[in-house]
Structures are given as C-alpha cells and as structure tokens.
Amino acid sequence: MDVELRQVRNTLIVRCEGELDMLVADKMRSEIDKKMDNNEIKNLILNMEKVSFIDSSGLGVILGRYKKISSKNGRMYIVGARPQVEKILYFSGINKLVSMCRNEQDVINLQGR
C-alpha cells in the first residue's frame, strides 16, 4: 500500500494505492493523523481510485478519520472508489457520513458552492 499526502490550502488530499487491510491500516492511520494534527487542516479527501480491496480494518481507518475531521467541523470526501470497493463502503454505511464523489475535481466544485 502506497500513501501519498498533499495539502491544498486547508484540505488534505490522501491518495492511496493497493489493498487496504489490517497490514496497512496502522501505517495509513498514523501517516494521515500526523498531517491532520496540523491545525490548518479542516477537510480530508481520500482518493481511492487505485485501491483494489478494502475490509473492515480499512473501514475502521476511514471511520476514525471521519470522526477526527468532524470534531474539527470539517468535511470528508471519498473519491473514485471502484465498484467492488464502493459496494463495501455502502454496505458499511460510511457513504452516509462521508460524501462520495467521482473525482477530486468534483470535490473542488462541491466546495466552491
């Protein structure tokens, strides 16, 4: 699992690649949290275009980051989830908490409103 972090103004963009299971959950959690503890960060975009698998360990990382961002009154977005990953996100109900978007541009358009 590769995780690329980028900050654009007050938004943290996380692009991950590979399989999101227990092996990578801890690493991903700590890398995102390190950046998120920076007070400027208000919103989080999780780009899942290149994630081929997710299980409940991965869902736990997403839920935890959502709670953190919400406590800062920020918003969280998931973009580009593939059908098999999207199915699990919907099954878990995470889609009711986090905005699901097609791509990063859609989020920027949404934020611009």
Partner: peptide, 13 residues
Amino acid sequence: PNRMGLGFTFMKS
C-alpha cells in the same frame, strides 16, 4: 473502539 465490528456481519451476509 477503533474497529467497526463488521467482520462477522460481512461473513454472514
């Protein structure tokens, strides 16, 4: 607390 408790739910479903 940091887990969703969905493991057995997925297995059953």
